[in-house]
């Protein structure tokens, strides 16, 4: 499976079994920069594959996911939202790791970090390959990304 399909399967699986929200994939549309308050959650992958799994969400979408996930009725971004989105990222990265083609790859996960604010940028540095998938919920759209160290630099490792 390609990274794109791995992301789709991992995310849809978690939403249908744990978050319990209707989710669809928006195909053929390049994610545009989000506006307004938002969150980005990220977790590192280390070992035979080096990279980061990231989720970028507008604040209302992050709140919607948290309420569905934890059975709450929160209306602002608080610690519960950060924890829930961090845990979601952890689960997505775990699903991605499980679905990666070479099962003998030794890949370990770091711990999630959550960034939030109005206008910030958050992405890998140096040479990396990016795979993004855009998802849609009733409350809006969000992006799940894998940023993986570029193959040429993997050889020099």
């Amino acid at each position: 499976m390609e990274y794109k399909d791995i992301i789709k399967e991992a995310v849809i699986d978690i939403f249908s079994s744990m978050v319990l929200l209707d989710i669809s994939v928006i195909e053929g549309s390049t994610p545009v920069p989000m506006e307004g308050p938002m969150l980005s959650s990220m977790i590192g992958l280390a070992g035979d594959l080096q990279g980061t799994v990231l989720i970028h969400l507008p604040a209302p979408v992050a709140i919607d996911i948290t309420n569905a996930f934890l059975g709450l009725e929160i209306d602002t971004v608080d610690d519960d939202v950060k924890d829930a989105i961090g845990e979601l990222t952890n689960m997505v990265a775990g699903g991605v790791k499980f679905l990666l083609p070479e099962t003998d790859q030794d890949i370990a996960l770091a711990i999630p970090s959550v960034v939030c604010g109005q206008s910030y940028s958050c992405e890998a540095t140096g040479k990396f390959d990016r795979t993004s998938v855009l998802f849609e919920l009733g409350s809006g759209r969000f992006v799940v990304e894998m940023q993986v160290k570029a193959a040429s630099s993997m050889l020099r490792r």
Binding site: V114, T125, Q147
Partner: peptide
């Protein structure tokens, strides 16, 4: 893992 950079006029970073 690989390094990432965050920048902006106002943001929070929290490690869980």
């Amino acid at each position: 893992a690989i390094p990432s950079a965050i920048c902006g006029s106002e943001y929070e970073v929290e490690c869980l």
